[in-house]
Computed example of a mutant assay.
Amino acid sequence: MREVSLIGVELPEVRRGDDLASLICSSARLQERDVVAVASKVVSKAKGYLVDISSVRPTERSLRVASALGMDPRWVELVLSQSDEVLGVLPVKELYDTGTLRLEDVAYDAEAARMALERFPYLFIVRRSGMIWTDAGIDASNVPGGLYAVPPPDPDAEARELSSNIASRCGVRVAVVLCDTEVSIAGASMDRAIGSYGIRPVDRGFGKPDRNGVPKYGGVDHIANEVCASAALLARQTSESIPVVLVRGLSYEWYEGGLRDFSMKRPVEALRAVIRATLRAMGPEALEKLVGGLP
């Protein structure tokens, strides 16, 4: 029998300047080769990656976008300033208002949920630090009023530093994965990895023989994402106060690099390749149907 355990670690309220490694070491009994899944927001709190919305000064571009969408221009400016590129806009409120998504299926309090939708009727789909995010990963949950937590600018470096500090404070070598919650177009969310150190984030399953000795097509697990998704079963997103989860018993390859090593290097070229293959296989009508279905 094989077993992997998830151990939730409660921490006191993390503030700027706190030694996160010491807090983890004093709150949990770490073991060699544990994988420590950490909510990126506590890293942002400890490092001071927080922005007071009242200090944000919108640019002309942000004012224009905010006016078109009916949103706070300071929020729009904050998102745009933290983004490398805006790829699209997701009309979340419209999807719920039209019944495309059912608020009753996901709302703890429907009235409170609708108030939140009034404040944030749209999500910006952006590219930031080589990854795709909604609203650049910025949010205000579980931070003091008026402040917004911004993801660490270099999550791999933060994971490496935290692993090193845990080794010096606790005397054990652990891998660290930084996790963040991302929203899908279906309205639900899932935790994913945004940075890592000590664990090879993507395994080497492609071409590995299956039980019949046939080389596997695909089979490449994103281990770091699976760690975060599993940890989220305990961490959740509201008042659970479990920003750290130990994943114990996982067999993994130690890796000195980070998650960014495995990011898609040329996403635009990849999209063009998909379009070329679609045209070659299905003809131009395939793209015409897609475009024709848009308002």
Score class of each variant (00 low, 15 high):
P58Q: 08
T100L: 07
C25V: 13
D135F: 12
E111M: 04
E60C: 11
L90R: 12
V202W: 06
T134V: 15
S263A: 15
V42L: 04
V76S: 06
S168V: 15
S168Y: 11
G283H: 02
P12I: 12
A116Q: 04
S62W: 07
S263T: 14
N142M: 11
D97C: 02
V214A: 14
E158G: 03
L103P: 02
W133G: 03
N165Y: 13
L23F: 03
L259T: 11
P155E: 10
R276Y: 06
A136M: 10
I53K: 10
L20H: 05
A281E: 15
E161P: 06
R160A: 14
D180G: 06
A193W: 01
A107P: 01
P121V: 04
F124E: 00
R128M: 07
L259N: 13
D203H: 14
R61C: 02
S83N: 09
D210M: 02
G219R: 11
L101T: 08
G219S: 13
V183C: 01
Q31T: 03
G257R: 12
T134I: 10
A136H: 07
G213S: 09
G171T: 04
K265D: 14
N225I: 01
C179G: 06
V36M: 04
L123V: 10
G17R: 01
I7T: 11
R102I: 11
S54L: 14
I242T: 15
C25Q: 09
R119P: 01
V244Y: 06
G293C: 07
A286M: 12
Y255C: 11
R192E: 12
T98A: 06
Y148A: 06
M115Q: 14
V38H: 00
E13G: 05
P73K: 05
V65L: 08
S81D: 09
A281T: 13
L233W: 11
A229E: 10
E104V: 14
S251V: 09
Q31N: 08
G293Y: 10
R169Y: 08
R128T: 00
E118C: 00
V126T: 15
G249W: 10
V76R: 02
R280T: 02
